[in-house]
Design a protein around this nucleic acid. Sequence first.
DNA 1: TCGCCGTTGTGAATCGTTTCAACTCTGCCG
DNA 2: CGGCAGAGTTGAAACGATTCACAACGGCGA
Lengths: 342, 342
Amino acid sequence: MAVSVREVAQRAGVSVGTVSNVLNRPDQVKATTVERVREAIAELGYVPNAAARQLRAGQSTTLALVVLDVSNPFFTDVARGAEARAEEAGLTVTLANSDESGARERKHLEQFETQRVAGVLLVPTADAGDSVARLREHGIPVVLVDRSTADASVASVAVDDVAGGRIAAEHLLEGGRRRLAFVGGPHSIHQVADRYAGADLAIAKVDGSSMVRLDTEALTLEEGMRVGAQVRDMVRAGEVDAVFAANDLLAIGVQQALLSGPDPVSIPGDVALVGYDDISFAAAAVVPITSVRQPRRAIGTTAVELLLAEREAAEGATRDHVVFQPELVVRASTQTPSSQTV
Amino acid sequence: MAVSVREVAQRAGVSVGTVSNVLNRPDQVKATTVERVREAIAELGYVPNAAARQLRAGQSTTLALVVLDVSNPFFTDVARGAEARAEEAGLTVTLANSDESGARERKHLEQFETQRVAGVLLVPTADAGDSVARLREHGIPVVLVDRSTADASVASVAVDDVAGGRIAAEHLLEGGRRRLAFVGGPHSIHQVADRYAGADLAIAKVDGSSMVRLDTEALTLEEGMRVGAQVRDMVRAGEVDAVFAANDLLAIGVQQALLSGPDPVSIPGDVALVGYDDISFAAAAVVPITSVRQPRRAIGTTAVELLLAEREAAEGATRDHVVFQPELVVRASTQTPSSQTV
DNA sequence: TCGCCGTTGTGAATCGTTTCAACTCTGCCG
DNA sequence: CGGCAGAGTTGAAACGATTCACAACGGCGA
């Protein structure tokens, strides 16, 4: 059934070693021989067996990228960046989804370990520590993505979420807002906690400003709408004049809730709104939403860079920790009341 | 470096065959021996090598799912369904993204062929024919997803897009609308063409009804907004009283365009709006959008079922072609003008 | 004691590729 | 004409797990 090098060799009248050479170092083989072998390959429809190749090589040419949610555009963009850079290095990327579940994450990582992947790019859940240690003990390089870790021995690439939270809140404060609401959760997600902490820093610097925390159970549109209904009442009551949402999905949900129903509140007239991630839906919302943009593709490419470096790195050497700075993209949802046509 | 069965065997004082038996048929090994081997495995941190296993077995236990766009919720839901069913069968699913490019699709399929995957679930681009034939010649079962094919010899699972288009248009006509606009494109995507054709059937049955075709270059939010601006003018001019968009992203874009700017038109007062796919954004839009729902998870699970059947199937047997019927989910965007508070 | 059976364990062969030391040519120099 | 360099090719060993024909063992009935 299966066509192997042996048969190709026979057909072309050469040895298996030569077939292998044609496949991997054609310049070391005489042109006419290359030709003959190529023909045999075509005639027999030979396809190399990746498992055998890998067995011999000791490891695969595949990188694993484990993300928290494949359907989140943030992660798909990171994936695209990683794929592009990996391809340059002759590697392939496979995508896996942990759905924020530690158990699923562990299952995937075990799976990847049996496959002897060339490396793992991991957007870790809260309890990834053990799995990561295990992988590294077994010689599989790991790069943590979107998370700065205390452990200096494992490389990471992240975005400064504290800074992101700070610039978002500063922007609102500069626009004259004083009564902020932070929509996000669960706070066990460190990105959420960091963005909140950053915003809190900004609040602390401005007298008379305050921020109330409205927790969500997930970073979804639905949760945004749920909390948005609450926000609407608080805006009407004058308790809140600005909302900072931990991501754009929440922000969009909040906006939908604020704008729908009888007697909607006005954005940015009654309340300003800032999101996080700058997904395309944010720009395309009814009132385009100001958002904090992260260099998504760059995160992916950098993660692969770090992984490649990791493969050479000495045992105990400390690893690189790249931290990108986020950027505020200002849109209609945070125009200052004064500049607003009422 | 690498721990193999040999070392485990030595440590446990048994032969490699026994270690293999402990791993694969523990019930044929005496309990105390199992125990001893398990301990050795744990102490050495042994992890089986998937490549070696696969080389011996002749094929992997991985299914490949190639989709047009990973970030489209439709496909991620299909993937979830497939994963769930595959897991029951002891298989793993890896996800690949063709980005609607025939070249990328081909590259992925070649890659999967070298990996000797257990099967391929393919959401095909226009020019997938050759690749599919090649895979099947080489003994890799293929199931086409989201596409009914003329070729009876390859299994497929699809949704009846013509029926979907028809029920969408019928719903609009029943609501008293007569001047429809179809927003979608390119029409080389068969789903788009089918949905249009289905809507056309409905139009043909109702005197005095018409449908104008507004082409887009892609099924994206941005394209929806672009065409939406056009639609707004046509609505104001009384040329259009209903919009049927080829998918929800377009519908949302159209809605944003209709509602924003000075002097927005009213939905569903001035114009009704129907989308397709029933993604969560559709329900969560400012005016919740009526949409055609497809049984997404079921598509995924069924695709895997067909693939499993395919593996047993005789050479020349004809394959199953499962066609699901879509379902209309009615929301505020198509309330009839009469029942509407003006 | 012998033969037989079932249970448990053995180890060599196998999968398809890559690697590498060794070999064969060819042509050329001295 | 012997020796030699270099290009081109060879073929056996190795990677790690699985398989399977067979061996070892203990128990049991005759």
